[in-house]
């Protein structure tokens, strides 16, 4: 197995906040690797270090076998970067944006133009090719941004929250594109706040919290750790909450959580749901809602860290540009 990206003990501080507290990664070539975590977990900072935009205070990393500090120029020849915020030039047309990148990468005028046309067609932007990017929709901008990062046929692609703020259809289109890239042999490092996205795309996931990788594995392995599913019970009468907590806790052999008059508990076997239903019935507790659903990022987090992911917690990526990248659109 060869690794397209390796990181060991990356530490990065911004003033008093520690954005990265020792990140280790090993991303196999030709796979999608998911970096999963809440806002401020250090995902963007990790990407910025790996993409040669930011120096780590300590630790080291290689991309394509090259050190991101000592051989930054070589690393830049291998990578493509797409930020959470479409980093295309809004004052230029789609074609001009791609021409700019192509020319900067040393393509001849004719080659740059041909490559721009090819990519615009591939991302369904041919009709909008000669319109300024500021007139594009969010999904179109994101596609153009992705196209821009592919002009140089990168071996390693960094996608920093590529679907944040996208509608479900655009999101699915983007997922298809990412799968296509991996088929072509590209290694993709994807950061996301959504377990579903990591689940859909990544063959391996690292869960990041407070600047550390707290769990690593395939989506199946991670979900298995949380029991995979969660049972949510909302009693009709909030006075029954304590009893419901006791029943759920006993049936699932786990400690339930209470939020907004709803009890949630990780489910780790097929017998839990019937057992809970039976006991609720025995105790004659009327239930307003009873649902079995997949583990959310929150629950993976709760399980792994003992605390809930708090999207509004002070971010570790609180540099001016980092903050911009990690901000969630309203």
């Amino acid at each position: 197995m060869t690794y397209a990206i390796r990181a060991e003990g990356l530490v990065r501080r911004f003033g008093a906040t520690t954005a990265l507290a020792g990140v280790d990664l090993a991303v196999p070539s030709g796979t999608v690797y998911g970096l999963l975590g809440p806002n401020g977990a250090g995902k963007t900072t990790t990407v910025r270090v790996l993409a040669t935009l930011l120096a780590a205070d300590s630790g080291h990393a290689t991309v394509g076998g090259y050190d991101v500090r000592r051989d930054a120029h070589r690393v830049r020849q291998l990578i493509g970067l797409t930020g959470q915020y479409a980093s295309v030039d809004e004052a230029l047309t789609g074609t001009e944006n791609l021409l700019l990148i192509g020319r900067l990468l040393g393509l001849s005028r004719a080659d740059a133009r041909a490559r721009a046309r090819e990519l615009l067609a591939r991302f369904q932007l041919a009709d909008a090719a000669d319109r300024a990017a500021k007139t594009y929709s969010g999904g179109m901008r994101r596609r153009l941004d992705l196209a821009a990062s592919l002009v140089g046929r990168p071996q390693v692609l960094f996608l920093d929250e590529p679907t944040t703020g996208l509608d479900p259809r655009s999101r699915n289109d983007l997922w298809d594109t990412v799968r296509g890239l991996v088929t072509d042999g590209v290694t993709v490092l994807l950061t996301t706040q959504y377990l579903e996205e990591a689940d859909q795309l990544a063959s391996e996931i690292a869960v990041v919290d407070h600047g550390r990788v707290i769990a690593q594995g395939t989506p199946e392995e991670l979900k298995a750790k949380t029991g995979g599913q969660v049972l949510a019970i909302r009693p009709a009468d909030p006075a029954d909450l304590a009893t419901v907590v006791a029943i759920a806790g006993e049936a699932a052999a786990a400690s339930p959580e209470v939020a907004q008059s709803t009890v949630t508990v990780a489910v780790n076997g097929p017998g839990v749901l019937p057992a809970v239903v039976r006991r609720l019935d025995d105790a004659e507790i009327p239930v307003a809602e009873l649902a079995l659903r997949g583990a959310s990022l929150d629950e993976v987090f709760l399980h792994l860290t003992g605390h809930r992911a708090e999207p509004d917690a002070p971010t570790g990526d609180d540099t001016p540009s980092g903050a911009d990248l990690e901000r969630t659109p309203a």
Partner: peptide
């Protein structure tokens, strides 16, 4: 800088 274009440029060789 604020729109992220600068980062894109700096990540290029």
């Amino acid at each position: 800088l604020t729109k992220g274009v600068f980062d894109r440029l700096r990540a290029l060789p």
